[in-house]
Design a protein around this nucleic acid. Structure first.
Length: 426
RNA sequence: GUGGCCGUAGCUCAGUUGGCUAGAGCGCCGGGUUGUGGUCCCGGAGGUCGGGGGUUCGAAACCCCUCGGUCACCCCA
């Protein structure tokens, strides 16, 4: 063992192992999202964990994610690859490659990788749930996509998640605006220091979401993007808002909402939780990216989608006191063997094959110890088989919550336990 | 990349101005008479005090380095 052993044999910085029972919350969140995707008519898309680095470079040269947070590698064939730092680019790449019939509605659950200093709600590997629709620019799709995400939070029981929306306009609108904004910032921020001026010059939009106190005055008085929308973008944005209102989805206009990727056009939105500290309060976000497919060498294809951070969702649930997944019995039965061995092994096997969740102890533990394990396992029933029961071709079944115990013919146990489970789920 | 705080049993933590075989609660294992858990009682296992170096008669405590955790900034999910 070297002195580094303590650092080597542990999850790398910014990554975490998720074990049960914590992991059961994860699978539940994913399951809810998958159900919802199915109800909305989205199909699962699975893309590689890594792509050619260029795929991600298309998401924008001014984004930090691309500039300094990508995990890049060169494979043995000399290819420049990168671990996925965000979910949309690979999906668009898959669309361009396979040209499925539009509108193509796809959802995904996948880890993203960003090389940054970890802190609460921010990790080097984090998981995102997401959905994308390619091939149609109907504002109704924007509304549907937003409703999909919004409903997901509501389903989970979250009440403090707020929706903010904005429009980035058409690329031409945005180009005009960026020039206006840059000029404004340079004119009014001369006293704010070099960092401000550099950013205003190079990435004026990035100034809008800066958190620096000293900058806020200038930022608040800045011209707003929505004032520079062309007719098409303005009408589109109005229809999105009307759609949200029709579905009674609360939302607030957020003229300074600029998302982290350069590819956004038109509608952009973000879900933030009041239960989280402002620094990392975004629990999901997305928007339209009508140029991205074309930038990847495909035909001009509009698209819109969102990503939701699973870790942040779970943190939010915790902050709001919302429990994900039930805390009912984890097992239907825990089988206790009293000196028989094989007969008990067969019983567990039979219960499992019958569709019941059943477990047992190993290593020849005492009967007392086995009952203790049955209790710890959060099983609904302890099912004991010993010489006495075997003689009567029965098993002893004890309700671990009420401590009442009865005897049931061996061949009826599975059916009986299934019936009890049925009752519990009502 | 920059900065603050922290690092003692599986977990949460105590360890007084450096000084007795390093403790507690929870958890884990066993027992409380022969086949029954969750309460209670008794007992037990488990720690190179993150790692390395230094100061000292003596360090878990002090100093340096290093690794790790955590939080914040930048920015994002």
């Amino acid at each position: 063992m070297t002195e580094d052993a303590g650092a080597i044999y542990r999850a790398p910085v910014g990554t975490h192992d998720v074990l049960a029972p914590e992991s059961t919350r994860w699978i539940e969140v994913v399951r809810r999202f998958a159900d919802r995707a199915e109800r909305f008519g989205y199909g699962l898309v699975i893309t590689p964990l890594f792509e050619h680095a260029e795929v991600f470079e298309r998401v924008g040269a001014s984004t930090d994610v691309v500039r300094k947070e990508m995990y890049e590698l060169t494979d043995r064939g000399g290819r420049r690859l990168a671990l996925r730092p965000e979910g949309t680019a690979p999906v668009v790449r898959a669309y361009v490659q396979h040209h499925p019939t539009p509108p193509w509605k796809a959802w995904y659950v996948a880890p993203n990788f960003r090389y940054e200093r970890p802190q609460k709600g921010r990790y080097r590997q984090h998981w995102q749930l997401g959905a994308e629709v390619l091939g149609i620019d109907d504002p109704d799709v924007d509304v549907e996509v937003i409703a999909f995400a919004h409903g997901f939070y509501v389903d989970l029981g979250l009440r403090q998640v707020r929706l903010r929306i904005n429009s980035m306009g058409a690329p031409s609108d945005r180009a005009v605006y960026i020039d206006v904004l840059r000029k404004y910032l340079l004119d009014h921020g001369a006293s704010l220091g070099e960092e401000f001026l550099t950013r205003a010059e190079q990435h004026p939009l990035r100034v809008l979401d800066a958190k620096k106190e000293e900058w806020q005055d200038v930022i608040e008085r800045a011209p707003q993007l929505t004032e520079y929308l062309g007719d098409a973008a303005r009408v589109h944005f109005e229809r999105v808002q009307e759609g949200l209102e029709a579905l009674a989805i609360p939302h607030e206009l957020s003229p300074r909402l600029v998302r982290g990727f350069d590819y956004y056009t038109s509608t952009t939105f973000e879900f933030a939780s009041d239960a989280l500290d402002a620094a990392q309060d975004a629990v999901g976000g997305g928007g339209r990216y009508d140029q991205l497919a074309e930038e990847m060498g495909g035909k001009p294809t509009p698209g819109i989608g969102f990503g939701i951070g699973i870790e942040r969702v779970l943190i939010t649930c915790e902050a709001e006191g919302v429990t994900v997944g039930g805390d009912g019995p984890a097992l239907d039965a825990f089988v206790i063997d009293n000196g028989l061995g094989e007969a008990s092994t067969l019983l567990v096997a039979a219960l499992r094959e019958a569709g019941l969740r059943a477990d047992r102890a190993y290593g020849g533990r005492s009967v007392k110890a086995q009952w203790k394990l049955a209790d710890r396992s959060r099983a609904a029933y302890g099912v004991m088989l010993g010489a006495d029961e075997l003689a009567r071709d029965a098993v002893a079944v004890k309700d671990l919550a009420t401590s009442t115990q009865i005897e049931i013919p061996r061949e009826q146990v599975a059916g009986w336990l299934l019936a009890r489970r049925e009752e519990r789920s009502k």
